[in-house]
Design a protein around this nucleic acid. Structure first.
Lengths: 118, 118
DNA sequence: CCAAGACATAGATGTATGTCGATACCTTCG
DNA sequence: CGAAGGTATCGACATACATCTATGTCTTGG
């Protein structure tokens, strides 16, 4: 709602009215699009789903790599993208890296699309 | 509304569990991604929002063109894309073409992301 | 039936993106 | 310390995509 110095996509999504209530400003649309774009790939959809539905709500990269016929750098690239927009949180424990979903961000995005208030 | 042999993105979205409940199958992800991709553009986000929030829930292409600093074919291209995935319905009345949002499709997509039941 | 206007399609072009192999970076273990 | 394994970064490449101009199609008015 109020603009501070710079709004992250997540913050923009959380503050905006549902798409169906009032026209989205060009500036808001520019900030939200990268977040939606991060989801607009079958591999990233599955990654997010795998992490979200995994035991304890977190998944190790090693588990995720095995779920795809893709190279390790490619999976790493997709995870980084999801992390950069704020949909996945990252935590390194020892040698392994664990990802978990930012449920709030995903919920805010759903609210923006569906019109249900956050 | 039931076309049995092949599932449209919309139908896939409507039938799948929320992303956070169970891992999305590769096939489902492939069908859903185009729908999300259709939303993953600032212009299309604004188009959808403009149509949805317009009086009577529908908007003429002529109105939409004026809202952007883009050529008419470009807007037409984006509208076609949104229509092809089922997010916008199209109706020609006389010289003008009116678009309205498929609220169910948008809601189903939101449910898929947010985990709220469809 | 022809001209004008609203919208769609076609073809071209620059940029973004998904993927890979090679390699660098860490952390643990012997 | 040095090797091994897990993960990230880099550079390259092919494809996808957003945009434009030019043109086609359809409907209405004169």
């Amino acid at each position: 709602m109020s603009k501070s110095l710079e709004l992250t996509p997540i913050q923009t999504v959380a503050c905006c009215s549902p798409l169906t209530r009032e026209p989205l400003s060009a500036a808001d649309a520019e900030r939200i699009a990268p977040l939606v774009k991060a989801l607009a790939d079958p591999v990233r959809l599955r990654l997010l789903s795998l992490v979200a539905s995994h035991a304890d709500g977190e998944a190790c990269v090693c588990d995720l790599n095995d779920a795809f016929d893709l190279s390790q750098p490619t999976i790493s690239h997709h995870l980084k993208l999801l992390h950069d927009v704020g949909l996945l949180d990252r935590e390194k424990r020892g040698v392994w890296v664990y990802y978990r979903v930012n449920a709030g961000a995903l919920g805010d995005l759903a609210a923006l699309l569906g019109g249900v208030s956050a």
